[in-house]
């Protein structure tokens, strides 16, 4: 087996980087601070380079669809065309190029909010279909949802008592529940981190 496929190497790198970050968070040690800064910059760079990996993955899958004339292959061809166009304009023209600016303002920044707008429709169908009162807990969920929707809707403020009750739901039971979950989540993250740093969490590691 290749040395790069061994589990020990990623575990050692993870443990070294992870423990260094923990030390840097609590203590002022110039050497550790400079090494951890370097590791952070590496992490940002690797993440940035991974975009190329994503583009390659996307390119391979969609080029294969076009080549084999699979169903809706022309949509894959359109995706590849737009992806290449944005890459060329972004790299050679930079983000200040008029064509990049035009595509950003008229395509990207209009399509993005439109996708978010879809959520209003999904929210409507989910409210009709999914918020069923099957138990006392789901009844409480529905009542809380209605109160908080009234609180979020500006008009809710004119219904007497709604703001007071909804604010109480938001500030007391909601905050208490959120804090409990946050505490559990933080402890869960610490536990997972320890398992990862010690190499016990193996799901992402090569066999």
């Amino acid at each position: 087996m290749s040395i790069f496929k061994r589990r020990e190497i990623p575990v050692i790198i993870t443990a070294f980087s992870g423990f260094l970050m923990v030390i840097e968070y609590f203590f002022t040690i110039p050497l550790v601070a400079s090494i951890s800064t370097g590791i952070r910059e590496w992490a940002s760079l690797i993440a940035a380079f991974a975009v190329g990996l994503g583009a390659t993955n996307l390119g391979i899958i969609h080029a294969s669809r076009v080549r084999h004339r699979r169903e809706n292959w022309y949509l894959s061809a359109w995706l590849l065309f737009v992806m290449v166009l944005m890459i060329i304009v972004g790299i050679f023209g930079t983000t200040k190029h008029p064509l990049y600016d035009f595509l950003f303002a008229n395509v990207y920044s209009t399509v993005g909010p439109t996708m978010w707008g879809l959520l209003a429709f999904y929210l409507a169908s989910a409210s009709f279909r999914a918020l069923r009162v099957r138990s006392l807990e789901s009844l409480l969920l529905l009542i809380s949802a209605i109160l908080l929707m009234l609180l979020s809707a500006p008009i809710g403020g004119i219904i007497p008592g709604v703001t007071v009750v909804a604010n109480w739901v938001q500030n007391v039971p909601n905050t208490a529940g959120m804090r409990g979950i946050l505490l559990g989540t933080a402890l869960g993250a610490i536990g997972l981190s320890i398992r990862t740093l010690l190499g016990y969490e193996k799901g992402y590691l090569p066999e």
Partner: peptide, 23 residues
């Protein structure tokens, strides 16, 4: 746009109650 927000939320409330009544 806050009027749209108000009406949207009211519709959601109506739909969630209506869904339960029908169920």
């Amino acid at each position: 746009t806050t009027d749209a927000l108000s009406l949207g939320f009211i519709l959601l409330i109506v739909l969630s109650i209506l869904g339960n009544v029908i169920w």
